[in-house]
Write a protein that binds this DNA or RNA. Structure first.
Length: 444
RNA sequence: GGUGGAGUCGCCUAGUGGCCGAUGGCGCCCGCCUCGAAAGCGGGUAAGGGGCAACCCUUCGAGGGUUCAAAUCCCUCCUCCACCGCCA
């Protein structure tokens, strides 16, 4: 779709087969770091070898067919008959050889698309719980009253309406109402502006994407059951604007001076949350639809690591401005997504849960997505090379949880962080109803 | 949704079955000329794959088909443009 090769049938990229031939141990080591099967490297090498030999056979036959074909038109009537017979049998052979090469290419592809990105050196080993806390910023606030959770506060403020969300759309849907809607707009706008000041190009992308776009970003592998699909139209609802922004330059060769190419995307995000029944069922921590401002960068592979650090710094700046206590964690190999080589999360303190919850996540996808989507840049020597892509969260609906809970006062009002005030036009969010007042007359 | 037209190498463009991986122009790069520049002249200028190499193969929106042979003929799809219908 994005300019992949024809007769051999195989993808151009996904992982670099030439690099694999030279150093298969690199992939084996990465697979071990992820807790996945290292022997896939050897399977790939085998498939690659047989595909290449089939391809060579096809190409040789094809070259012969072409030259015989050309001689047909120049031949004398007597020779013609004989040449045509030869050409016909060659055509059949070519067809057969092409099919064989194509079949082997497809076999290789099906294994290839399953191979996750190579883990960056330095990433912690292990699984979900083996992250490393890099830094803790701020102190969890000491309350001299019993803090209310974000939903109770949201209801008092007239900011969140879960019940009507469920009535209209089902579990894990909600309305942001009144100041809740305003707070979200203010927060996301503040994030957009911060990024724009840093030179990002603001983008409002489509939230429905084609299968190849979703596939290219690496979301259709293990986690395909997380993604909404519209079968009538064969379109996917994005779980993050990263998907559309990664697809934005698919099949293109970017001029070298265009890098780093930074975008800041604003979109609604949709997640089925299929594997999390019963988890985070209260409030807007884990919902099917939310809004997110996402940084997305195309850059030189050599500069990807530094860019990753910058994305993390920009995320932290947002959290700092909002006065939220948080910690930065380095995600372990086994918990990286398919496309990430390295991932840092920022987790904010949620007082009523007495724990840190993920607010941001920034991934260095190196050339993984660019290979699948065929995004290249032109090197100094004029050669096209695969770009690196990175992404990072700058604000989401979930941040409202942390803002409300951390900045609440005993009467249920919430102090608006100073940096947010210009966007919200309020210093304090005042309750419009007493706590625990469930007689709102809204049930059927 | 309906009808008609179109998609060719950065841009524009030639090309109706073999002499076409593909014409010409613009742009860009190199050289000549010039004190320097412009103009002019000459040359170069898609990507991917295989091979130590010579070289070979693939790709003319995508996929399939006809044929010894397809940019060229047929089918399906996608995109764009125009008009009609409908509508935020």
């Amino acid at each position: 779709m994005w300019g992949r090769t024809g007769a051999g049938g195989n993808l151009q990229g996904v992982i670099d087969l030439r690099a694999l031939r030279e150093d298969p141990e690199r992939l084996r080591a990465s697979q071990r770091a992820r807790g996945e099967d290292p022997s896939i490297a050897d399977r790939l090498l085998e498939l690659d070898a047989s595909r290449r030999s089939a391809l060579t056979r096809f190409e040789t036959l094809r070259a012969e067919q072409k030259s015989v074909g050309k001689s047909v038109s120049k031949a004398s009537p007597e020779e013609r008959e004989e040449l045509l017979t030869k050409a016909k049998s060659l055509a059949a052979e070519v067809k057969e050889a092409e099919a064989e090469a194509g079949k082997l290419g497809e076999e290789l592809d099906t294994v290839l698309v399953r191979v996750p990105n190579l883990v960056e050196e330095g990433a912690p080993e292990g699984g979900v719980d083996d992250f490393v806390v890099m830094e803790t910023v701020g102190e969890p606030r000491e309350f001299d009253f019993a803090p209310r959770d974000h939903l109770e506060l949201g209801e008092m403020l007239g900011a969140i309406d879960m019940e009507r969300g469920a009535k209209v759309s089902g579990a894990r849907f909600y309305f942001l109402t009144g100041v809740g809607a305003q707070l979200e707009l203010a927060l996301l706008n503040m994030a957009m502006n911060q990024a724009i000041e840093e030179g990002f190009t603001p983008m409002i992308p489509p939230v429905l994407v084609k299968p190849e776009t979703m596939e290219g970003t690496g979301f259709l592998g293990e986690h395909s059951d997380e993604i909404y699909h519209l079968p009538e139209d064969d379109l996917y609802l994005v779980g993050t604007s990263e998907v559309a922004l990664a697809g934005y330059h698919a099949g293109e060769i970017l001029p070298a001076d265009a890098l780093p190419n930074r975008y800041i995307g604003w979109s609604s995000c949709f997640r089925r949350e299929a594997g999390s029944y019963g988890k985070d069922t209260r409030g807007i921590i884990r919902v099917h639809q939310f809004n997110k401002v996402e940084m997305f960068v195309y850059t030189h592979p050599d500069q990807a690591h530094e860019e990753h650090e910058r994305l993390l710094a920009w995320e932290r700046r947002m959290l700092d401005k909002l006065g939220l206590p948080y910690r930065v964690v380095d995600i372990a190999g086994g918990d990286l997504g398919t496309s990430a080589a390295r991932k840092y999360d920022c987790e904010a303190w949620v007082p009523t849960q007495e724990t840190y919850r993920e607010l941001t996540s920034t991934s260095n996808c190196t050339e993984f997505q660019a290979r699948r989507l065929n995004v290249r840049y032109r090197d100094e020597d004029g050669k096209p090379r695969f770009a690196a892509t990175l992404n990072g969260t700058l604000a989401t609906t979930r941040w409202i949880v942390a803002i409300l809970e951390n900045h609440q006062r005993e009467d249920g009002s919430v102090v608006v962080p100073e940096a947010l005030r210009p966007y919200l036009g309020k210093e304090v969010l005042e309750p419009i109803q007493a706590a625990k007042d469930k007689n709102k007359g809204k049930k059927k």
